[in-house]
Amino acid sequence: MATDAQRSQATGQTDDLLRTVDEEELKPVHVWPRLVSVELIGALVMTLLLSIMAIFVRAPFYRMADPELTPNPSKAPWYFLGLQELLLHMHPALAGVIVPGAVLVLLGAIPYIDRSKKGTGIWFYSKKGVPITIFSAIYTTIWNLGLIFVDEWLPAGDSAGIAPWLKMHGFSDAFAEIFVPIVFMTFIPFSLWVIVRRRWQADIRECMIAMYTFFLASFFVLTIIGTAFRGEGMALVWPWEIPYPPHGKE
């Protein structure tokens, strides 16, 4: 019944990895019936829930496509609304192609940056893992919301926003729509990395936790704003102010 804590004492390890996994938990059991039954129940519950939903909630189906009738707002499916939200704040090439491309490449690169196998199979890695996750989520959310609000309401002559404000003060389009957004999008994770390293003496894995949390929290915030808080003309509104149905009046 040696717990991991006891074992780590015995081997004299002093790192602060979470040792919450009991030795008992690592004993092998037969896949049949132990795992197969869990999988079967999971599949059945999923099928049941989806069936209930399919009975009671109708899949959206509006009137026939009409190229003449542009709905206001026109929105992509929910999982792309984060990108559509970015589209409001920067050059379309950046929001629509470069950022999502970079996100995919960086996601794929995670195991090649964090190469140590130490910490495999442990939820949140170390005692610092959870605090770092929470801090990163809050830090990212505040930055995201702050930038969205400033870009929505910063007065710039006839319009509002950071790019129009910069252009009003004589900066070029490329500077306002490409350079400045890139600076923000690199500064936020970079500053997060520095803070986490200084405040927690984080190792690479813990920094990676901060980076992934930055990605996930940004995805959540942008998706939620894009889905529930963007109304006519993609203006920032309350969810109940978004025109419904989305294709305009029947």
Binding site: R63, A65, D66, P71, S74, H247
Partner: peptide, 12 residues
């Protein structure tokens, strides 16, 4: 091929 489909794709 309804309004939702058409305009979501045009955004894409």
């Amino acid at each position: 091929w309804d309004q939702l489909a058409y305009w979501a794709i045009s955004v894409g």
